[in-house]
Simulated assay, not measured.
Amino acid sequence: MRLWSLHPALLDRAGLVACWREALLAQAVLAGRTRGYTRHPQLARFRAHPEPEVAIAAYLHAVADEPKTRGYRFDTTRIEATASERIGTTPRIPVTDGQLALEWRHLLAKLEVRSPERWTQSVQAGRPLPHPLLVVVPGDVEEWERAT
């Protein structure tokens, strides 16, 4: 499971679809509807949020906004409606600049192989933008990160 700290606009189509599916799985885990993935480290920042289900709904809505700019869409009815109603007031989640840099390098390596055109655009952009739910703070890679 990879719940990117990067802005969804930086992801290629495969990455965006995977992020959507994995965030939907995270939503189910946080709502207690699954038996698997309950201890997945990527969920730590959502569990630390005062309203984890609202935070994952906000995350999903931002991911769902990106395909609209590309001419396709995700089924937003799969996002918990009760959580969606409270998104406007949810606090943003901090992410360290070290985590963002690690994910940026990870994404660039993936794009170089599977989407060279997007890789070129990303390299020219220079630096990564965070997901709209996140706010960047100084620091090293997050403790929950398991990437090598």
Rank of each mutant, 00 (worst) to 15 (best):
V141H: 02
P50L: 09
A26I: 11
T120A: 15
P128G: 10
A57E: 05
V17A: 08
L107P: 04
A57D: 04
T82P: 00
V113C: 01
G32A: 10
P128Q: 12
V113L: 09
V29A: 03
E143A: 15
V17E: 13
T69P: 01
V137R: 15
A81Q: 10
S122P: 03
G98P: 09
W20S: 02
Y37M: 09
T120L: 13
E142G: 07
D65P: 00
R105C: 10
V135S: 14
A18V: 01
P41Y: 01
A26E: 07
E22A: 09
H7V: 05
I93G: 01
H7T: 08
I79E: 04
T34K: 10
E142R: 05
V95M: 11
R118H: 13
L60T: 02
R13V: 14
T69A: 14
D140Q: 14
Q42W: 11
E145S: 13
E145M: 14
E142H: 13
F74P: 00
R86P: 05
Y37Q: 04
V29E: 07
P116V: 01
T89Y: 08
E117S: 12
L133A: 07
L100N: 04
V29P: 06
I87E: 02
P94C: 04
R35Y: 05
I56H: 00
P50G: 01
Q42C: 07
I56F: 07
V54P: 01
G32C: 11
G71W: 06
C19Q: 15
A81G: 02
V29D: 10
W119G: 05
R13S: 12
Y72H: 06
A125P: 04
A18G: 13
L100V: 14
V54L: 04
A64L: 02
P116D: 03
V29Q: 07
G15N: 02
T38N: 10
K110G: 12
R118D: 12
E143K: 14
P67L: 05
S122H: 12
A28C: 11
